Computed example of a mutant assay.
Amino acid sequence: MKTLTFLLLSALIALCMCTGASDSDTKSVGAGDSPSDEGVFVKRDVAAAVARQKRAGGADLSQAQLESLREVCEANLQCEHMMDTEGIIAAYTAYYGPIPY
Score class of each variant (00 low, 15 high):
Lys2Cys: 00
Leu4Ala: 03
Thr5Cys: 12
Phe6Leu: 08
Leu7Lys: 03
Leu7Asn: 09
Leu8Pro: 00
Leu8Phe: 03
Leu8Tyr: 09
Leu9Lys: 02
Ser10Val: 06
Ser10Cys: 02
Ser10Leu: 11
Ser10Lys: 03
Ala11Cys: 06
Ala14Ile: 15
Ala14Met: 11
Met17Tyr: 03
Met17Leu: 13
Cys18Tyr: 11
Cys18Gln: 09
Cys18Gly: 09
Thr19Cys: 05
Gly20Asn: 08
Ala21Asp: 01
Ala21His: 01
Asp23Pro: 07
Asp23Cys: 08
Ser24Arg: 00
Ser24Pro: 04
Ser24His: 01
Ser24Leu: 04
Asp25Cys: 04
Asp25Arg: 09
Thr26Cys: 00
Lys27His: 02
Lys27Leu: 08
Lys27Met: 09
Ser28His: 07
Val29Pro: 00
Val29Tyr: 06
Gly32Asn: 07
Asp33Asn: 10
Ser34Asp: 12
Ser34Asn: 15
Ser34Arg: 12
Pro35Asn: 06
Pro35Lys: 01
Asp37Trp: 01
Asp37Glu: 13
Glu38Gly: 14
Gly39Leu: 07
Val40Ala: 11
Phe41Ala: 14
Val42Pro: 00
Lys43Arg: 10
Lys43Ala: 12
Arg44Asp: 14
Arg44Cys: 07
Asp45Gly: 05
Asp45Tyr: 08
Val46Lys: 02
Ala47Tyr: 08
Ala49Cys: 12
Ala51Thr: 11
Arg55Pro: 14
Gly57Tyr: 15
Gly57Asp: 15
Gly58Arg: 04
Ala59Glu: 15
Ser62Pro: 03
Ser62Val: 05
Gln63Arg: 10
Gln63Cys: 05
Gln63Ser: 14
Gln63Leu: 14
Gln63Ala: 15
Ala64Pro: 00
Ala64His: 04
Ala64Gln: 12
Gln65Lys: 04
Gln65Ser: 06
Leu66Ala: 14
Ser68Arg: 12
Ser68His: 10
Leu69Arg: 03
Glu71Tyr: 01
Cys73Gln: 07
Glu74Gln: 13
Ala75Trp: 01
Asn76Asp: 15
Asn76Phe: 03
Asn76Leu: 07
Asn76Val: 05
Leu77Asn: 11
Leu77Pro: 15
Gln78Trp: 04
Gln78Ile: 01
Cys79Leu: 10
Glu80Gln: 12
Glu80His: 07
His81Gln: 10
His81Leu: 01
His81Tyr: 01
Met82Val: 10
Met83Cys: 11
Asp84Leu: 13
Asp84Cys: 09
Glu86Val: 12
Glu86Ser: 13
Glu86Arg: 07
Gly87Pro: 06
Gly87Thr: 14
Ile88Asn: 04
Ile88Gly: 09
Ile89Leu: 15
Ile89Pro: 00
Ala90Tyr: 03
Ala91Met: 03
Ala91Glu: 07
Ala91His: 04
Ala91Trp: 02
Tyr92Ile: 10
Tyr92Asn: 12
Ala94Pro: 14
Ala94Lys: 09
Ala94Val: 03
Ala94Cys: 06
Ala94Phe: 09
Gly97Trp: 06
Pro98Trp: 02
Pro98Asp: 13
Ile99Gly: 02
Tyr101Thr: 13
Tyr101Asn: 08
Tyr101Lys: 02
